[in-house]
Design a protein around this nucleic acid. Structure first.
Length: 648
DNA sequence: TGGACAGCGCATGAGC
DNA sequence: GCTCATGCGG
DNA sequence: GTCCA
């Protein structure tokens, strides 16, 4: 049984599993229509599988610990999948209920370190450290084999019994499953035991199924480290924008060709600042934080902006363009991971979770390597909590608390929350009602009472989650624009969001529409016509929300469309606004926090805010404090001028 | 130690 | 039919 | 969660 053969086996298995999985999916769908009780369904499915002769539940009742290896995510994932499909539960960290540790390495000491233990004797009584090949053989044999030939450590024989009480000694890093049981979490294993070849799989299956709603019955592999789209800063086209008035008057699309010198407005400067590569979408918050943190109270600062504060923001400064990958990328990813995981979890404080994301941004833009939490806590935005409870934990190399909470439940809920229209509340509700995966929802949509909008989100789940390449944004823009021009050539229509910021990809496509009132024109009623035309052309395919008043000067439409009949479905928003709000709104909705943070801060400092208040436009919620009429800034440059910002 | 951390439009459903 | 509260998104 | 009054 050489390694090679093992790999071949694995390939065979993989195919095998794929076929098997399809079978299960069908079974599920069929069963759901008739069976409402989850437990009953579980049994039915099990029976069905045994009937298929695939022996998928060989590992029922077994709990495997696989310590993740750096750089071997995909291997880990496939192992996880395979064990899960065989009915076993997989955990990343050892706990008091594990029955096996999968380990192909050489030394017990190394493994102990990987597991975060001082010694392997901390493992629960009877835990078997076994090589992956054993799993493969079990799969092939369709039963739990003797572990003898595949033990990780022949000599030390960790299949020997240990004292389980000793294992849970005080200070042990191992999670005690029994406390979870007390807390009402259901865990599949209730009793330590020594698995052996003599285990009757049907017997253990029964035991397993008797447990109510097993928490981790469908373990999922860890997500690979999220790769932000902006791995490399966009080698952005110099897409400074021409004076917006000219552009729109001339009916020209956002050029992203070359700017005419001296024609850029204030935002252009910001954008060019963004394009020096340092600032990326999704890390805006930290920029905002840092920016605000560093502003104020520096009277000696020599700035060139009319408003000194503006100089203290990244975007208002000169940029040297040299900004490479942060030395703290690892920490940044960890915090992103936390954010992704926690943002859907009920009971997690909104601001706490948001802070994780901000921490990620801070990590990424901290130029010096953070080697200990204490250093990090000096940074604004990183407090003692993050430093000690998280950063130190991450840096220790041990998985830390995150891994304890990185459960299949959290993952399922996070996935649900990615459905358009499903937020934290609904995501948790769906889980409560028994859904464990997107496919579960799809298999029985009625059962979960999804709203129409959510059904669209579910149907188009993958498409809507995908980023939209810049090219495609442009294509959609051209379509929308041409229809708008056909309605009224004097309309101003602009694409907003990350596209306008020069990003290579966007999450959705936003349009801002208005019309100059100078000559008595108005865009009233355009929204309805535009949407109808686009629908007729097949550009708009789904509607998610409609304006209260289609003819109002301020109206918002949200929906889904696509550039071509074969293309992916994309989120599309269309917003009509009164003409005098154009300038501020364009900035506001271009939405770059790097731009909006300073501008909001600056304006706020002057007793203004930039909210697009419904009636009062962008002039600071109509507060009487207003000393500047930002509303009149229908050109961006006007806006920037009005808050004392230098623009070229 | 306790409040702010943005504020708002739309969909939905409960209550009236 | 209405208002109000809640969830959600940008 | 952090920051600030």
């Amino acid at each position: 049984m050489g390694r090679l053969k093992g790999k071949k086996d694995l390939q065979t298995l993989t195919k095998h599993f794929e076929a098997f999985e399809k079978g299960v999916a069908k079974d599920n769908a069929a069963e759901r229509s008739g069976v409402t009780d989850r437990k009953g369904k579980g049994k039915a499915r099990s029976a069905g599988q045994v009937g298929l002769g695939l022996g998928s539940k060989v590992f029922d009742g077994l709990r495997f610990c696989i310590s993740p290896e750096i750089g071997a995510v995909s291997k880990h994932k496939s192992w996880w999948d395979i064990i899960a499909k065989m009915g076993g539960t997989v955990v990343i960290r050892p706990d008091t209920a594990i029955t096996h540790v999968i380990y192909d390495g050489r030394s017990a000491a190394l493994l102990a370190r990987e597991l975060g233990l001082d010694t392997l004797s901390e493992l629960p009584e009877g835990t078997v450290c076994v090589k992956w090949d054993w799993v493969v053989k079990c799969k092939m044999a369709n039963k739990v084999l003797e572990t003898g030939p595949w033990l990780s450590f022949q000599k030390t024989a960790f299949n020997r019994a240990f004292s389980s009480n000793a294992a849970i000694r005080e200070g042990s890093r191992m999670r005690d499953i029994t406390t979870d049981l007390l807390k009402g979490r259901s865990i599949s294993i209730t009793k330590r035991r020594e698995p052996s070849a003599s285990d009757s799989e049907t017997e253990s299956s029964k035991k397993q199924r008797a447990a109510p709603s097993v928490l981790e019955r469908q373990p999922q592999p860890p997500k690979p480290v999220p790769q932000r789209s902006s791995e490399a800063a966009p080698t952005a086209p110099a897409d400074a924008y021409r004076d917006n008035a000219t552009t729109h008057g001339a009916g020209r699309g956002p050029g992203w060709e070359n700017p005419l010198a001296n024609k850029g407005d204030g935002l252009d400067e910001l954008i060019s600042g963004l394009q020096d590569g340092t600032i990326r979408e999704d890390e805006d918050e930290s920029v905002k934080e840092n920016g605000i943190a560093n502003e104020v109270a520096d009277d000696e600062y020599e700035g060139t902006n009319p408003c000194l504060v503006a100089d203290k923001f990244k975007c208002g400064q000169n940029h040297d363009g040299a900004d490479d990958k942060s030395p703290n990328e690892y920490l940044a990813r960890k915090f992103e991971e936390m954010y992704d995981l926690y943002q859907g979890v009920a009971g997690k404080d909104f601001f706490s979770v948001r802070n994780y994301r901000m921490a990620a941004g801070i990590m990424r833009r901290t130029p010096w390597p953070i080697t200990k939490g204490a250093d990090a806590s000096k940074i604004k935005g990183i407090g003692a909590n993050l430093a000690e409870r998280w950063i130190d934990e991450f840096l220790s190399g041990r998985p830390g608390r995150l891994f304890y909470e990185d459960t299949s439940q959290a993952r399922a809920i996070a996935a649900f929350k990615d459905i358009y229209g499903v937020g934290k509340s609904q995501a948790n509700e769906l889980y409560k009602r028994g859904a464990r995966s997107i496919d579960d929802l799809r298999a029985d949509p009625e059962r979960y009472g999804l709203t129409s909008g959510q059904q669209v989100g579910l149907e188009l789940y993958d498409d809507l989650r995908a980023r939209i390449p810049r090219e495609e944004c442009k294509a959609i823009y051209d379509l929308v624009r041409s229809e708008a021009m056909a309605i009224d050539p004097k309309l101003w229509i602009e694409i907003m969001g990350s596209y306008r910021r020069g990003q290579e990809a966007s999450g959705d496509v936003d349009f801002l529409i208005t019309e100059d009132t100078e000559d008595g024109g108005s865009h009233a009623g355009v929204m309805g016509k535009l949407v109808n035309r686009l629908r007729d052309r097949g550009v708009i395919t789904h509607e998610l929300s409609q304006p209260h008043d289609w003819r109002a000067l301020e109206a918002k439409w949200m929906g889904v469309g696509r550039a071509t009949p074969e293309g992916k479905y994309r989120r599309i928003d269309i917003l009509c606004i009164p003409f005098d709000q154009w300038g501020a709104a364009l900035i506001y909705f271009t939405g770059n926090d790097v731009a909006s943070a300073p501008s909001q801060t600056i304006t706020a400092g002057r007793g203004l805010s930039m909210g697009k208040g419904s009636g009062s436009g962008c002039s600071g919620s109509g507060r009487p404090k207003d000393r500047l009429d930002v509303r009149s800034a229908s050109l961006e440059s006007g806006f920037w001028a009005s808050i004392g910002y230098r623009f070229v």
